[in-house]
Nucleic acid binder design. Structure first.
Lengths: 232, 232
DNA sequence: CCAAAAGTGTTAGCCGTACACCCATGT
DNA sequence: ACATGGGTGTACGGCTAACACTTTTGG
């Protein structure tokens, strides 16, 4: 035992953000192009250092606002996991706490702000991110896919008055499958607290076809029974 | 923007361990009694600093071996989450990565080693741990309860040749419920890859009643369909 | 009228639940 | 013989999957 624990080692601690949304019918992630070494010119997940007086969750929320250019980020954020391989950053020892954010379709980041370098990209087109961010992104995608099964997470991908069909599109896009319309409707409406109807019809304009009832998110957070995707 | 990101702040990084096992028919956790401030004399989760050249997962495995006094820890370890509130350690800024370990019943930690101060305690009897360890333990218990539903985690709580009944006891103990014996058996055997039969009967000695077929863990890691506990 | 989308009905099969029953073993 | 625990059978209710049908709206 040659290790002296009274002198504890020092680490830099960062947050990395996997902000997910649905854009153009594809699950999309917010990426930045790095302006400095290492990995200058390659894409990476947004993120930054945790400050001495804030929690990692606070740092994640702060960075999300800065990177999207929105004063308050309108989605749901949860911790994904922590990545701590000694060589994951070539400069120094960095431990990074990754967060996943789920948001409805957001405006394109505005030039002239911190968010200028940020842009949305379909997760199917993402390859060769800097650091270990390919791994982090893969973990985040697996997280969102499985959380759709047994939580009401899907409501975080649509804006407040939404239709059952909107919800179905979330499931179909994230899972890459198709679902039976009638059965999906019954399943959602049969789960108390998943959605609540708003007493007014919608989308009377522009579209063909009958107008749809609109809903808001309900109070439930977990689904009993779950909505299972096909066993593969 | 008065923050200078070129001078990144320094943190201490630790791992905290929630080692769970089944002892005397109760879900039990490994605890240590702290020998120094802060929280001297109170119980806490085992853990320690991450060293400069190891990942957090390596640190978790190393600490588990040291605290249990076993050269190799015979269970399954996974990351639980990271706890980073600025005031969670009164001495300094510490970010702690928590791990959960699931193990079959292990021998009592041996005196005269690092593990001397460690002991198993039923989670129902645990209160007032130091730091934020009550929160971490609660998160770990919720994790194990939900992972029983949709993964083969239960096999990590029993030693290699086990019976279906042994598995059922894991579920009943962790969930605090009772399950129908016949239906549980069919569910387990009907899930391909959950368990594999060993061609020999068992426990011919000591017990009353018919001898039970013994099984080993299968290759599957996830359960389709899941074994759902009652909706509460 | 036709197309498109929302909403409802219906049926057959599967699965979960509950419980009864038989088999093997030790006292 | 009997108690104890392993293993099997079965019948019923509910849920799911698949698909047909009706209703509403725009072109």
């Amino acid at each position: 035992m040659t290790y002296d624990p009274t002198v504890y080692p020092q680490f830099a601690v960062t947050v990395d953000l996997v902000a997910l949304t649905l854009r153009n019918g594809a699950l999309s992630v917010l990426l930045v192009e790095r302006g400095e070494e290492p990995f200058r010119g390659t894409r990476a997940l947004p993120g930054g250092f945790v400050r001495p007086d804030e929690s990692a969750a606070d740092a994640a929320s702060r960075e999300l606002s800065e990177e999207t250019g929105l004063s308050i980020f309108p989605g749901y954020v949860e911790q994904l996991g922590t990545y701590s391989e000694p060589d994951r950053d070539p400069r120094m020892r960095v431990v990074s706490i990754a967060y996943v954010a789920f948001a409805p379709d957001l405006p394109e980041p505005v030039a002239g702000t911190d968010a200028a370098a940020a842009s949305w990209m379909s997760v199917d087109d993402v390859r060769d991110l800097g650091f270990d961010h390919d791994t982090i992104l893969a973990d985040a995608i697996e997280r969102v896919r499985s959380k759709l099964e047994y939580t009401t997470l899907a409501t975080n991908f649509v804006t407040d008055p939404f239709t059952i069909r909107d919800l179905q599109c979330v499931y179909e896009t994230v899972w890459g499958t198709t679902l039976d319309r009638a059965n999906f409707r019954r399943k959602v409406l049969g789960t108390t607290g998943f959605v609540e109807p708003v007493d007014g019809v919608t989308t009377a304009t522009g579209r063909r076809g009958r107008n749809a009832q609109v809903y808001r998110p309900g109070r439930a957070e977990s689904l009993h029974p779950p909505i299972l995707r096909a066993p593969m």
